[in-house]
Structures are given as structure tokens and as C-alpha cells.
């Protein structure tokens, strides 16, 4: 079973991202589970969401404490909340940032593999959200597909079309463009 933890801020779409990723994996025949950290949602406040992907039935109903993959929708969370807690050795960290992976260090994690993509710029390009607070959830899923290979970019785009109510085409294009521009 693969466990993915999303960290974002209210308004960026982390919860929706966890759901879209689950549906993409489901389309590929996997068992899935997706849920948010059950808090009170406020714009700008830290948000956590979870996705589990498995070949067999998922029975656990508990938060993810030892993720295989971390998806960070807002780099300002780094240092502000304990993002890497429990990350498995050689776990993957995918960050929405214009910076390069080597500019980040997570000494508390064991041999993490860092990937970056400028999801905010791509979301702004496709007019997803506003310039000041772009909605980066669909863009970063393109990076997740590329960095992890757990689902294909086609499945991500299909899930976006099923699950995102507006600007379906732009959201899918944002995911595809990010897929092509992931740094590792």
C-alpha cells in the first residue's frame, strides 16, 4: 500500500487533490481511500489530506503517520509545520516552488528524494484561481504522476475531468504542462 500525505493551505485545493489522485488510481484498477484531516476549514490555514492506494482491500481508518510520498502545495509550510514527520526512508517530497530541488534540505528525513515544479506559475497561466492565490491542486498532480509513476498523466487528466466542476480543460492542461516540467 502506498500512502500519500498532502500539505497545503485552505483555498489551494489539497483536499480535492487527494480525491482526484484516488480516482485516477481507481481508474487504473486500484483500491483507494481519500480523506481530509478532519478540522475546521479556513482560507490560508494549514490543511492536510491523505490518499491511500493499494492492490488489496484498504481496511485501515486512521490518519497517515508514515507516508511514502509528501506533496507540498505551499512551500511556506516548510519549517512552519512538521511536514516530514514519519516520512519513510527514501520517501519522495514533491514541492510547488520555482526553486530547484537542491535548494531544499530535510536533514530530519532519511535520504528523501526531492522534486520541484512551479505549479503556481502554471496555474496562473491557465487562470486557475487568482494571481495572488492560484489553485495549484491539479497542476501539482501532474508533478506527482511524473515524480512517482504511481498513476499515468492520462488517468490524472481523466480524473480531473470527472471530479473538477469548472475549467476542466484548463485544469487538465495545467497538469500536463507540470508533468513536463518537474525538476529532480
Amino acid at each position: 500500500m502506498l500512502e500519500i500525505r498532502f500539505h497545503g493551505r485552505g483555498g489551494q485545493g489539497a483536499v480535492k487533490a487527494s480525491d482526484v489522485l484516488a480516482i485516477a488510481a481507481f481508474e487504473e484498477g486500484k483500491e483507494v481511500q481519500a480523506f481530509p484531516f478532519f478540522g475546521v476549514e479556513r482560507r490560508g490555514a494549514p490543511v492536510t489530506a491523505f490518499t491511500r492506494i493499494s492492490d488489496t482491500e484498504i481496511r485501515i481508518h486512521s490518519y497517515i503517520y508514515e507516508p511514502d510520498i509528501l506533496v507540498i502545495l505551499d512551500p511556506s509550510l516548510i519549517g512552519a509545520v512538521p511536514l516530514t514527520d514519519g516520512l519513510k526512508p527514501s520517501g519522495k517530497i514533491i514541492i510547488n516552488t520555482s526553486r530547484k530541488p537542491e535548494e531544499f534540505s530535510f536533514p530530519e528525513a532519511e535520504n528523501p528524494q526531492v522534486f520541484t515544479a512551479d505549479c503556481s506559475a502554471i496555474a496562473v497561466k491557465y487562470r486557475l484561481g487568482s494571481k495572488e492565490s492560484p489553485i495549484v491542486n491539479t497542476a501539482i498532480l501532474g508533478a506527482v504522476a511524473k515524480a512517482t509513476g504511481i498513476v499515468s498523466i492520462d488517468s490524472i487528466c481523466k480524473a480531473i475531468e470527472n471530479k473538477i466542476p469548472i475549467k476542466k480543460e484548463e485544469n487538465a492542461q495545467a497538469a500536463r504542462e507540470t508533468y513536463e516540467h518537474v525538476l529532480s
Binding site: 480525491d19 484516488a22 480516482i23 481507481f26 483500491e31 483507494v32 481511500q33 481519500a34 480523506f35 481530509p36 478532519f38 484498504i58 481508518h61
Partner: peptide
Amino acid sequence: LDAFFLSHTSQV
């Protein structure tokens, strides 16, 4: 059904 652990959790 448990609040959130089922009500707001997506599963197959």
C-alpha cells in the same frame, strides 16, 4: 457510520 472516518472518506 463514524463521522468523517466514513462520512467524508472516499472509498471504492
